[in-house]
Amino acid sequence: MKKILVLIIMVALMFSTFIACDKEEAKGKGPVTVATMIDSEGAILGNMLLTILSENGFETVDKIGLGTPDILRKALETDEVDLVIDYTGSGQYYGAVADAEVWSDPALGYQATYDFDMETNNIIWLSPAPANNTEMLAVKKEFAEANQLKTMADFANYVNQGGEVMLIASSSFASNELGLVGYQNAYGFELTNDQMIVLSHGNTAEMLKALYDGTNGVNVSLVYGTDGSLKEMEMVVLEDPENVPPVYLPTPVLRGELVEQYPELETMFKAVFDTLTLETLQTLNAKVAFDGEDAKTVADAYLKEKGFIK
């Protein structure tokens, strides 16, 4: 019997050395812990950050796909992680106070979030990508052609004339003043509860699939600006000239101490993020979500193509 005990202890010791060995070798600068939400865009952008840091002699810890958005934010606030990908419009949920017009403007929204987080939490929002990954509504191309829908105003008309509607969206969007509620106010329509399927999370890939398959009669879906699958799935986004929802620009967000320690990070990341336009992100996202390629491979290929790495 003692032998089994010894075996168990040995196995346990073996595994604990296993964990210890997983730590990366010390390189020089850092370590910088990079974390993102569980989604494809986060994985791509996060991996870009990791590769850039690596190439510039930083030691990194990979926590891509850490958890839900709440977990991610909490991790950053408690110094669990150092660098995350977040969106400028989220500032309003973290406590930055401003009017709706501020959030609808890319520059003002960014500034509001930046000021708030720097003062309150010593968290610095670096240079964002010029891609508005905001919430919009999408319909199938044939549906749009059949009902002559091009803009949100057209859609409002369609609803008011009694057209059949089944919207699929996240709960946060559906109840948001600057989300569905805002759209309804701006364009003058209202959807009843039976005309909506509300999900507790914001995974648009699932919603778009439902729209594509027509599951449960869904014919309009929430979609994010940078979603990749729109072209392949033959869907169109309804134009929003009023700019109702807040602007969400993907941004590297870094803890203040690290910005002070390594000021070069700001310029390094800005160089890359400046190239990430809406179309670029759509293409990259499509590769990962649609074609099923690995996010790291896609990120590195892009960086190489643009000459950021060798």
Binding site: A35, D39, T68, E80, A205, A289, G292
Partner: peptide, 23 residues
């Protein structure tokens, strides 16, 4: 555990859910 940053296969599973990738 994957939801709270514990890693493991849970993180992959939820990624699959997020991307609507059944495989």
């Amino acid at each position: 555990a994957g939801l709270v940053g514990g890693g493991g296969l849970g993180a992959l599973l939820f990624l699959g859910l997020a991307q609507s990738a059944s495989d």
